[in-house]
Design a binder for these strands. Sequence first.
DNA 1: GAAAAACTCTAAACCTACATTAGAGTTTTG
DNA 2: CAAAACTCTAATGTAGGTTTAGAGTTTTTC
Lengths: 279, 279
Amino acid sequence: MKNELLSIGEMAKINNISVSTLRLYDEIGLLKPCYTDEESRYRYYNIRQNARLDMIQYMKALGMELKEIKEVLESGDTKLIESILIRRKKQVKEQMANLNLQLGAISRTIESLERYRKSPNIGTITIEYIPHRMIYSLPTNTNFYDYGIEVYENELRDLKNSLIKHNLPQIYYCNAGTTMKKESFLEGRLESDEIFVLVDEAFPRTESVKRIESGMYVCIYLDSFDDEPEYAKRLLEYCEENNYKVAGDYICEVLTEFSVFDDEKRGMFLRLQVPVSFR
Amino acid sequence: MKNELLSIGEMAKINNISVSTLRLYDEIGLLKPCYTDEESRYRYYNIRQNARLDMIQYMKALGMELKEIKEVLESGDTKLIESILIRRKKQVKEQMANLNLQLGAISRTIESLERYRKSPNIGTITIEYIPHRMIYSLPTNTNFYDYGIEVYENELRDLKNSLIKHNLPQIYYCNAGTTMKKESFLEGRLESDEIFVLVDEAFPRTESVKRIESGMYVCIYLDSFDDEPEYAKRLLEYCEENNYKVAGDYICEVLTEFSVFDDEKRGMFLRLQVPVSFR
DNA sequence: GAAAAACTCTAAACCTACATTAGAGTTTTG
DNA sequence: CAAAACTCTAATGTAGGTTTAGAGTTTTTC
């Protein structure tokens, strides 16, 4: 029973690890077999070496790199282990926070796709209650209605870089939109005011984060930015015909955006909207 | 302003991405520059291509692989995106559960190291209140006191494999221990009863999971399995001298285990303990 | 208009923690 | 003693890039 040597295959089996992994560990000096036949180069292990292998696997499960593990095992310094673990703890927490954001973003995207499938036809006008929203916004430098998509792209770039510069999670960058002052809208002048991305409650509160109040909105659906001027006009006409009083700023919201068709145009699904009051 | 082409460096800068990543995307066909100079092979991009790049980055942020992203963008199939996202959602949840386990294990290890640093000298006898603990245990097949460390290693292997076989998180496998029946202990016979690992409240409840009740324990500290028989004897003598009544089974608990010194022996810090009553 | 600076190209190597494969040699089993 | 099972080395592949070398191109500066 004692001093029995284990072949690499046996060692692998009892430790639930692959043979090639054991060879790798030998190579990098993490776990050397206790005896190597000089002629056949066969590796032989002692069952007592399981202790070290357990340690390696445990540290690996804690997310440490093989290099770190080697370093720790060689130094035998528990202070070093501790400092690595403390660092690792931070990392794990960050990762969890990130995954949480991902989860939210994934759910929102799935919802958004569902909505897209069930959405009304292009040109449909609806009157909807829209709950309050939070947006991260920047004023537009140039009125992109005067120039076209390139300028819009630039503004969007600026917004994105502003997020990055402030270390804000970029993952929100899916549902974007623009606003226009009520006055501009009412007078039929197309003047961009702000560009924004929708964020959720978990988003850090900064100066640039604002709340758009809930309320009844008159909306019209479309699928291209190019059509915005025409559809905005229709929206205005509809409000006038029905005597709805425009109660706030106009919003162009990107509900779903999938640039899947070609490189030249954003494949979009948009909802233009103005809050109204029925006095 | 219009139709201005961007060099790869400019494109990289405005999108906060590296030049080499853009080249990689070109290579794998994920994002081809809209124009490539045939002589110089220089890549030129259009700002409108940002839409696609945004999409790529967004999907990447959702944790999708480049291959998947390419597939989705080429197919333009929102159903496909959705199914990938749903799969991804599951993955993320699993990852979070794993990270949670990691976090717990890391914290326990840090605590365990701290405890090690502040622990009493070898041979110290203490009387301590120990809160209740949960263990995952298996009966020992062989009395390893009769054979030595190899048999203990084997038993430990079996325990570990039992965990793996039942799909239980291996990360708990740090603090192990063994038990001995009260009767054996009192009569000075060394007979191993069970081998266990400590688990926490979050661990799934299976048949093999038991609770060790809280209570006052007489404990003795040591740093090698080899010394266990001697120290167990001392513990018994101490109880007898002081008229403490042994109230339950004997436990040999591994407080800290770092096989950092050599391959031949587990570097350990142990606490032998028996619950006592002061009638 | 020429030199210098800044940029870009391709191709290959490197990163982690292994997995896989080929082809040759060794040990165990029947 | 042959066949089966195992092990060896060395090289290659994986994902999503980064880094580097050496050559060529474009832009800036004087």
